[in-house]
Design a protein around this nucleic acid. Structure first.
Length: 470
RNA sequence: GCGCCCUUCGUCUAUCGGUUAGGACCCCAGAUUUUCAAUCUGGUAAGAGGGGUUCGACUCCCCUAGGGCGUACCA
């Protein structure tokens, strides 16, 4: 464990074509801890699976971190490109007697494993203590770690506490495959060491690996980094979050209309807390975050709470930014907003943004602006239009036509004054007015609706219904 | 099978031996009211089970149950 070196954390995703939300949270924790301690947050792309590691899949990682607002320091490290370095370390271990060549394969391997298990310990290859002959060396073989037979390996985990493993339960893992490819556990250790990573914050599915990796560090005489294994994120049913829960990828949440700052706040709060604080800024998160405060138990993704947090950040968001996001939603639906509509929407956004939980909802709530005239009223809406109501709305229309200020507050005042002069409550004309203006959709206060629609459109929609040219 | 980890309201969590077990989301009720929301006020709701240790356990220890991870020439 290191106390003196500057903190270096990292996120080490493999390019699979999508970025899991759990990876996103792990990245967030690494990012927050690094920033909290004034350290660096690095990215390593574990692209050793050549099949899946396409350029596009790698780009997904960059885009995901970029969208989440988690910039990494320095240049990204690509694991596959470092294979020679990994091999060199294995050779070093071989020469130092910390590793050995193993020709075990297929049935032999299974038999050896079964025998080891029967004897109460993990696999030890017979080649561990057997000198190969010249003929052997010519044959392809793997290189295994010569693990300690006795004693314990203690992982000092910042989240899980001290976790003790018996060395006899840890097998002699393969360091270099018979095809010459380095294995995960070896590559990770070498890379983290070379990148000077001081704190490994990752999913607790790696807790067992921490013991194996600790052994490798020790064998090389390297300082073992601090570990922090955080629980995985589960779906609403408590099972590990997977495809069948719907959204799992960062891009899914973006498409669903969640803001990155909302994701950061929500994700930070999932498995970590700072007293009773629920809504907080990035600066606060950085100031408060300590990996030691992370929880040990798995937590479930709660859409209701995510929505609540997202709604909060939508209210705080800049209108022009929201407009751009809303335009994307419309575009995804094959509807482009021209400049006129954008200007219209920009005017309406401040009037409706406190009502939306997601950007998609925000777009939905702006839809009434763009309804084609004449609006089609449903039966219920038509039922509102008695002669009495028609006459009243005609009088309102006159007042509206005379109004100069179409701001939301002025409209609100106008409506109030009108109701007063009519000697009736809003209930006597508001539903009908809303139906005419919006086609019956739920909409903000009528003052706001009128203001958002604007003078020309509002009067035209009233005309459509009240004075049919017929 | 073996090893390791986890377990407080439905959900996210606070508590770090002594609290009427607190907050947030959800839900319910009320207020407001021109729809839907938002907002405000109030409310329901929890220590998996069983043993210990202790004057006193959610908190420490053990067992059981449930869940998760690992046990690969995957990462």
């Amino acid at each position: 464990m290191s106390d003196s070196r500057p903190v270096v954390t990292r996120i080490a995703p493999s390019p699979t074509g999508s970025m899991h939300i759990g990876t996103a949270r792990t990245a967030l924790f690494n990012y927050l801890y690094a920033k909290h301690t004034g350290g660096r947050f690095l990215l390593r792309v574990e692209d050793t699976d050549r099949e899946r590691s396409t350029e596009a899949a790698v780009q997904v990682i960059f885009d995901g971190l970029d969208w989440l607002g988690l910039p990494f320091d320095d240049e990204p490290v690509f694991q596959f490109a470092r294979a020679e370095l990994h091999r060199a370390v294995v050779l070093e271990m071989l020469e130092a007697g910390k590793a050995y060549r193993c020709w075990l394969s297929g049935d032999e391997l299974t038999a050896a494993r079964d025998k080891a298990h029967a004897a109460g310990h993990a696999l030890r290859s017979p080649w561990r203590d057997q000198d190969p002959g010249p003929a052997d060396l010519a044959r392809p073989h793997a290189i295994r770690f010569r693990g300690p037979l006795n004693g314990d390996t203690v992982v000092h985990d910042l989240v899980q506490g001290q976790v003790t493993f018996r060395n006899r339960d840890l097998d002699d893992l393969i360091l270099l495959r018979s095809d010459g490819a380095p294995t995960y556990n070896l590559a990770v250790v070498v890379d983290d060491h070379d990148m000077e990573v001081t704190h490994i914050i990752r999913g607790d599915d790696h807790l067992n690996n921490a013991a194996r990796q600790s052994l490798l560090y020790q064998a090389m005489g390297w300082e073992v980094p601090a570990f922090a294994h955080i629980p995985l994120i589960h779906g609403e049913d408590g099972a590990k979050l997977s495809k069948r829960h719907g959204a799992t990828a960062v891009t899914d949440f973006a498409a669903l209309g969640y803001l990155p700052e909302a994701m950061r706040n929500y994700l930070a709060r999932l498995g970590w807390s700072h007293g009773d604080d629920e809504l907080f800024s990035d600066e606060q998160a950085i100031a408060w975050f300590d990996i030691a405060d992370a929880n040990k138990g798995a937590s479930r993704l709660d859409w209701d709470k995510l929505n609540f947090v997202n709604a909060h950040y939508i209210r705080l968001a800049d209108d022009a930014r929201l407009l751009a996001l809303v335009a994307e939603v419309f575009a995804a639906r094959g509807e482009t907003l021209d400049d006129a509509r954008k200007a219209h929407a920009l005017r309406a956004i401040p009037l409706v943004k406190e009502r939306a939980k997601t950007i998609v909802e925000l777009a939905d709530q702006l839809a009434f602006l763009y309804r084609a005239r004449p609006l089609v009223l449903d039966d219920k809406a038509r039922g509102q239009l008695t002669d009495e109501v028609r006459a009243r709305l005609l009088r309102l229309q006159t007042r509206l036509a005379a109004a100069n200020d179409w701001g939301a507050e002025s409209m609100e005042a106008l409506l109030k004054a009108f109701a007063e002069s009519e000697g009736v409550g809003f209930g006597k004309f508001a539903p009908a007015l809303r139906a005419i203006l919006t086609g019956g959709m739920a909409s903000p206060d009528l003052g706001r609706t009128l203001s958002a629609l604007g003078r020309e459109e509002s009067l035209a929609r009233l005309d459509d219904v009240l004075s049919p040219v017929a």
